[in-house]
Simulated scan of single mutants.
Amino acid sequence: MFALPMTSAWATHRSEAEQAIEEAQAAYAAAVKAGVASEETASLIKEAEAIMPDRQFTKAKELALKAMKQDTFAVEQAQGATVDGGAAKQAEAAIAAAEAARKKASSVGGEWRDTGKMIKEAQDLANSGDFAAAIALADSARRQGEMGYEQAIGQQGATFPTYVKKPQ
């Protein structure tokens, strides 16, 4: 007997993905009505719809939820909801610092694989109004950039030991 992990990230049923897309479309319609619709969220919804025939339900749901969060936040802003300006500025600064660290690491060939993805996700979180999560993720990305730079600099003069054979 064996156990399978049953988390929300495990799998999504078609109906869940379809429902998420419908909710995203409704949020987008509200954003259009409020005059704050973005091309980015429309594109996310189209992408979610496009991958449904390939049975990528989990990814479609993620895309739809991201679009819905961004449109909902934009509508709330348009209706006069206040945003913690300090948190927004902190998120913006954290994302900028992460991008600078990523570029520094990249300049010496030390950029890690997921750093850019983390920065983009942090920006998406900030666009959705989740500033605390954006700051945390951007800080992690910044640290990856710093460590990637340190790793690349530390290995610049490294050579293979004599017992390692070169490919022929």
Results as ranks from 00 to 15, higher is better:
1 M>T: 12
2 F>H: 11
3 A>T: 14
3 A>G: 11
3 A>W: 13
4 L>Y: 14
6 M>F: 08
6 M>T: 13
6 M>K: 05
7 T>R: 02
7 T>A: 00
7 T>W: 01
8 S>I: 05
8 S>K: 01
10 W>R: 08
11 A>D: 09
12 T>H: 05
12 T>S: 07
13 H>L: 14
15 S>I: 13
15 S>W: 13
15 S>T: 13
17 A>F: 07
18 E>Q: 14
20 A>Q: 04
23 E>N: 15
23 E>Q: 13
24 A>M: 06
26 A>D: 12
27 A>H: 01
28 Y>C: 08
28 Y>Q: 14
29 A>G: 09
29 A>Y: 02
30 A>H: 07
31 A>S: 11
32 V>A: 07
32 V>I: 12
34 A>H: 08
34 A>F: 08
36 V>Y: 07
37 A>I: 03
37 A>M: 06
37 A>K: 06
37 A>W: 08
39 E>V: 10
44 L>W: 13
45 I>T: 05
49 E>P: 09
50 A>I: 05
52 M>D: 07
52 M>S: 10
56 Q>D: 10
56 Q>C: 09
58 T>L: 15
59 K>E: 13
59 K>W: 08
59 K>Y: 06
60 A>V: 09
61 K>A: 05
61 K>M: 11
62 E>W: 05
63 L>G: 07
64 A>K: 05
65 L>Q: 15
65 L>Y: 14
70 Q>Y: 09
71 D>Y: 06
72 T>M: 09
73 F>L: 04
73 F>M: 02
75 V>T: 07
75 V>W: 03
77 Q>T: 01
78 A>L: 02
79 Q>P: 05
79 Q>I: 06
79 Q>C: 04
81 A>Y: 12
82 T>F: 08
82 T>D: 13
83 V>N: 01
84 D>F: 10
85 G>N: 02
89 K>V: 01
91 A>I: 04
91 A>N: 06
91 A>Q: 06
93 A>C: 06
93 A>W: 04
94 A>W: 01
94 A>P: 07
95 I>T: 02
96 A>T: 03
97 A>L: 02
98 A>Y: 00
99 E>H: 00
100 A>Q: 12
101 A>W: 02
102 R>C: 06
103 K>Q: 13
105 A>N: 13
106 S>C: 09
106 S>D: 15
106 S>E: 14
109 G>T: 04
110 G>H: 06
111 E>H: 01
114 D>R: 05
116 G>R: 09
116 G>H: 05
118 M>I: 04
118 M>S: 07
119 I>T: 00
122 A>C: 08
126 A>T: 00
127 N>Q: 09
128 S>H: 07
128 S>T: 09
130 D>C: 03
131 F>R: 03
134 A>N: 05
136 A>P: 08
138 A>K: 00
138 A>G: 00
139 D>T: 04
141 A>N: 02
141 A>I: 04
141 A>Y: 03
141 A>V: 03
141 A>G: 00
146 E>D: 14
147 M>V: 11
148 G>L: 03
148 G>M: 03
148 G>P: 05
149 Y>E: 12
153 I>V: 15
153 I>P: 02
153 I>A: 12
154 G>H: 07
155 Q>T: 14
156 Q>N: 01
156 Q>E: 11
156 Q>V: 06
161 P>M: 04
162 T>H: 12
164 V>P: 04
164 V>I: 13
165 K>A: 12
167 P>T: 11
168 Q>S: 14
168 Q>L: 11
